[in-house]
């Protein structure tokens, strides 16, 4: 890929620790053994995004895709690992460079109603950040906001309205305009179209693609919807319980999924052209991230699991250029290790 690397993360882990509460500590003094609960939300993920590229994070609830997105957008500090913005480690940055990163990577959230302040007018929601950061002066704010509104397909007349006076699709557009206002290079979209009706979702997806072309934006697109992901992304990272189990170019993964979980996901996607089908199912449910199974996290549900899978964490195996899978099947088989 000729495009320049915009963001790279290496060995990112994010753990959330729930400390033992007072009652638990008192019980411990009397001989109980309450321990703090640790959730490995993200476990050793490497990923890179080139300028203008769309990378998708895919997985089911609790797989850590949203947490990873927040680490990428600079909202969460990673517990372990490094984030590099244009080749520079953000932990080592001076404040000016750090600000370039925080403005350069913007997040768009799933539910615009809970991410837009209900008491602030749309124009101020969009215009506040660029004014504060000196991208535009107070006199030029109105014109700047009007331009952004037009860019996302909203009538600039609406800037005096409050968030509740908009429809769901329009609110999504306000969230996008707010993110664009600080001239980012990377948008992290966390299930940004999941709550929208199909016809409105199509409009917003088209808007994302128009913006990518017009502004050269890169996206990290977080979604559980493989149809959306296939449509919009260049590369996919498939996550399961905090780990990336397969990654590669979108068309290749859809053509030849290598990991049994990826295969199951693709088989289970409802499709318009699959009529009166029998639904193939993966057995079981997603285990709790508080208490993930040992070895390969997927092994209790995997139809191809062998003795090795419950013992050894699968290594990342390179299948081809840019194509990685973490499965024992691609790395010597599932029989017990000698």
């Amino acid at each position: 890929m000729a495009a320049q690397e915009l963001l790279r993360i290496e060995g990112i882990s994010k753990r959330f620790v729930k400390p033992v509460d007072l009652a638990g500590r008192i019980a411990n003094m009397m001989g109980a053994s309450n321990r703090e609960a640790v959730v490995h939300a993200v476990d050793g993920v490497d990923l890179s995004v080139a300028e203008g590229e769309v990378v998708a994070l895919v997985g089911e609830s609790g797989c850590g895709k949203s947490t990873l997105g927040r680490v990428i957008a600079g909202i969460h500090e990673p517990t372990e690992g490094h984030v590099f913005w244009r080749g520079q480690d953000i932990a080592m940055m001076d404040s000016a460079a750090r600000q370039a990163f925080t403005l350069g990577a913007q997040m768009i959230f799933q539910d615009p109603m809970s991410s837009l302040n209900p008491r602030i007018r749309a124009g101020e929601i969009v215009g506040e950040a660029p004014r504060v950061h000196g991208l535009v002066d107070a006199a030029g704010q109105a014109e700047y906001v009007a331009t952004l509104f037009r860019q996302v397909g909203l009538d600039p007349e609406y800037r005096r309205r409050f968030p509740h006076q908009f429809s769901g699709g329009q609110r999504a557009r306000i969230g996008i305009a707010r993110a664009l206002a600080v001239k980012p290079k990377l948008l992290v979209c966390d299930e940004s179209v999941a709550a929208l009706d199909v016809s409105i979702q199509a409009q917003v997806l088209n808007l994302f693609m128009d913006l990518r072309e017009a502004l050269g934006l890169a996206y990290v697109f977080i979604s559980h919807d493989l149809g959306v992901v296939r449509h919009i992304s260049d590369r996919i990272f498939i996550m399961y319980l905090g780990r990336v189990i397969e990654s590669g170019r979108t068309d290749e993964i859809f053509r030849e999924p290598a990991h049994p979980y990826t295969r199951a996901l693709l088989d289970n996607v409802p499709r318009l052209d699959a009529r009166k089908r029998s639904f193939s199912t993966v057995k079981g449910e997603i285990p709790s991230p508080l208490n993930p199974p040992p070895g390969c996290h997927f092994h209790p549900r995997c139809p191809l699991a062998g003795p090795r899978c419950s013992v050894e964490v699968p290594r990342r195996t390179r299948l081809a250029e840019g194509r990685i899978v973490a499965c024992h099947l691609a790395d010597g088989g599932v029989a017990a290790a000698a």
Binding site: S167, G169, Q170, D197, V198, S199, I200, Q201, A202, Q203, L205, N206, M209, D225, L226, G227, V228, R230, H231, I232, T250, D251, V269, R271, L272, D273
Partner: peptide, 20 residues
């Protein structure tokens, strides 16, 4: 036409303008 994944990836979806 609005259902993504069926249309050609990367192409614009055949959207319906306006809202309900």
């Amino acid at each position: 036409g609005s259902v993504p994944g069926e249309a050609m990836p990367g192409k614009r979806l055949a959207q319906i303008p306006g809202s309900t």
